[in-house]
Amino acid sequence: MIEFQAVSGGYPDRKVLREISFSVAKGSLTALIGPNGCGKTTLLRTAARRLSASGGRILLEGRPIEEYGRKEFARTAAFLPQNRSVPGITVRALVSHGRFPYLGFSRRLRAADRAAVRRALEITATGDWAERDLRELSGGERQRVYLAMALAQDTGTILLDEPTAFLDLYRQFELLELLRRLCNEGKAILIVLHDLALALQYSDQLVLLEQGRMAAVGTPEQIVAQGALDRVFRVQTHRAEGGYWFSPAQREGQKGSLEDGGTEKNLD
């Protein structure tokens, strides 16, 4: 699990995050949402120690993240950044890289490492491609393979930055179903999602950021009920059977208001 306590931070010349507090419990999926540039990725990178916080603290399994050793941290939290290169290596070689924090000085894979790689390939159903070149795979397939690498890290917490980007809809569902299964197995997952409908549908908790501050935190139902999405994203949220959909908010001065729950009659 990972806990944010009044975290502020950003870049040396630009403070992005202000006083962010929430926690991601074991076995739950939290989605970070917010308009472009609100600090979602910055927050995730801070949690992954790619950036350092200027205030507050982040606890991983109850311990401040800066107290972890480099490899120890990688054995406790996995981070999948959005920008990744696609080297010409096999799927198995990539997934095996997930075992790096467990390797000794000789950097050789032991039996336990091989077993973890096998398990990760199995869970993500990527075993059939194990000997294929990463570059031959489609974007969705690669995404799953990268997730397999993170799983091979065998961490309790997984941080993912927009893993559904560039995937077609079916693959997005597939990926999120897989993440849900991992949660059920006890992982704590923090994920940056661009797609609100998916975030509402699949997460246990939503953290809504607006200009580096927390605009709202809670279950999807709570967030919708507060009307926070409507305000921050300037949309109207509509509940439909089994999910949500959105329409643009009406311009100021027009009839029909933002805080009006969002039903069919508000649509032009």
Binding site: S85, H97, F100
Partner: peptide
């Protein structure tokens, strides 16, 4: 080869 960010997050 995985990129700096991924490599670092694997503990390198």
């Amino acid at each position: 080869q995985l990129g700096e960010e991924s490599a670092a997050s694997l503990g390198l």
